[in-house]
Simulated assay, not measured.
Amino acid sequence: MPGITREEVAHLARLSRLELKSEELDHFAEQLNDIVDAVARVSEIAAEDVPPTSHPLPLTNVMRADEVRPSLRPDEVLAAAPAAEEQRFRVPQILGED
């Protein structure tokens, strides 16, 4: 497979509205070729019997199940708040709105 040329990098730079110097075109062309080669190597290794995964280790949900449990009554909670108004916590205004 032919590599990415400096002309292709220049074209991509123009499309991206990036201004690249001549030495940057060569540098990025080399880097992009390395990336394409690395992806090709991974594609060669992938076997048909290996299912696609999003993570190398199996993940399980580590959260506990939701359970209804007794909790404080609203009046008990509001009694411990620094400020309350109309059965709600009163907090400082932050957006300057009325």
Rank of each mutant, 00 (worst) to 15 (best):
M1A: 07
M1N: 04
P2A: 09
P2W: 03
P2G: 14
P2Y: 13
G3R: 07
I4D: 00
I4Y: 00
T5Y: 00
T5N: 00
R6S: 02
E7G: 00
E7W: 03
E8F: 04
E8I: 01
V9T: 01
V9K: 00
A10G: 10
A10Q: 05
A10P: 00
H11N: 13
H11C: 05
L12M: 11
L12K: 08
A13T: 08
A13G: 02
A13R: 03
A13K: 01
R14P: 01
S16V: 01
L18G: 06
L18V: 06
L18R: 07
L18A: 01
E19N: 15
L20H: 01
S22M: 10
S22N: 05
E23D: 11
E24L: 02
E24W: 00
D26F: 07
H27S: 07
H27V: 06
A29Y: 05
A29W: 08
Q31K: 13
L32A: 06
L32Q: 06
D34I: 15
D34V: 15
D34F: 15
V36P: 06
V36N: 08
V36C: 15
A38W: 14
A38D: 10
A38T: 07
A40E: 14
A40F: 12
R41T: 07
V42M: 10
S43H: 14
S43K: 14
E44A: 13
E44L: 11
A46M: 13
A47L: 10
A47V: 08
E48G: 06
E48Q: 02
E48M: 11
D49W: 08
D49H: 05
V50S: 12
V50Y: 06
P51D: 02
P51S: 03
P52T: 06
P52D: 12
T53M: 10
T53H: 14
H55M: 12
P56C: 05
P56M: 14
P56W: 04
L57C: 01
L57N: 04
P58F: 04
P58T: 03
T60W: 07
N61A: 07
M63V: 13
R64P: 12
R64N: 15
R64Y: 09
A65W: 12
A65G: 12
A65L: 13
E67F: 04
V68P: 08
R69E: 11
P70N: 11
P70T: 11
R73H: 03
R73W: 15
P74E: 01
P74I: 00
P74A: 04
P74Q: 02
D75Q: 04
D75M: 03
E76S: 01
E76L: 09
V77T: 05
L78A: 02
A79S: 03
A79V: 03
A79W: 04
A80V: 05
A80R: 11
A80T: 12
A80K: 11
A81T: 11
P82N: 02
P82S: 01
P82L: 02
A83M: 09
A83E: 04
A84V: 06
E85P: 02
E86M: 00
E86I: 04
Q87A: 15
Q87E: 13
R88W: 01
V91Q: 03
P92T: 06
P92H: 09
P92G: 08
P92I: 08
Q93T: 14
Q93M: 14
Q93D: 08
I94Y: 12
G96Q: 02
G96D: 01
E97C: 10
E97P: 13
E97G: 07
D98C: 07
D98V: 06
